[in-house]
Write a protein that binds this DNA or RNA. Structure first.
Lengths: 110, 110
DNA sequence: ATAATTTATCGTATTTTTACGATTATACTT
DNA sequence: AAGTATAATCGTAAAAATACGATAAATTAT
């Protein structure tokens, strides 16, 4: 992004993580890896309606945010979910949830 | 987006909502409106490091996903938070949280 | 050694996002 | 009526995201 010094770092982190989830393919990749311990690129491609190169790019995006991890195994790549990072994602969202929802007006008020 | 018939509708909804949060300006707008009941465009612009027209666009994006609401008041626009929609956002995220985290391996396993 | 498999990367095209200044439309103020 | 204020939209530009086929690199299989 551009001049992001103007935004506070928590908002920036949240926006970065939200961006990871802003494409259904990436959401599905996370879901797949949550169910499977590890999966090859090929297996992931097989579950998505996208080409191999496109899926590879989505994997790279998730890698760069450390939401997933890659282990080489011969000619193939084994992807695993970074559970701690995923947990952090939900922590950050939950924090935003609380920060905003505390201000929600009660039904029997006003 | 393009051929999104290929993705299931829950993943699509989550990705759409995540996209709303994928820019720090939009996150801040939501935070501002959570604290303030309603705010004019001008007031929101004053809190963001962006031009009026750019902020207007972010407001439009949030409007189109029904995360905020607009009421006209003379020459100004009063924006309010759509609490129910925001709650839905967190519900959807929470659902994704549970759906994935159930599969997390226990520490004292294996 | 050759062929096949797997996957990242390259090149490219298209679309979307982000941003800003200028303009327009509308409603207020004087 | 003329000027001011507010905010959406237009025009435009630059950057980022999405997608695919082709290619390259590495490993495994024959």
């Amino acid at each position: 992004m551009k001049g992001n010094n103007d935004f506070n770092s928590l908002d920036l982190e949240l926006s970065q993580l939200a961006k990871c989830l802003s494409h259904p393919a990436r959401i599905q990749i996370i879901a797949i890896l949550s169910r499977h311990k590890d999966r090859t690129c090929k297996e992931i491609v097989a579950e998505l309606p996208l080409s191999q190169s496109t899926v590879s790019k989505h994997l790279k995006d998730l890698l760069e945010e450390n939401l997933i991890c890659r282990k080489l195994s011969g000619t193939q790549s084994l992807y695993t979910l970074e559970w701690n990072k995923l947990e952090r994602v939900f922590t950050i969202f939950e924090r935003f949830n609380k920060k905003t929802m505390v201000h929600r007006p009660k039904r029997n008020c006003c």
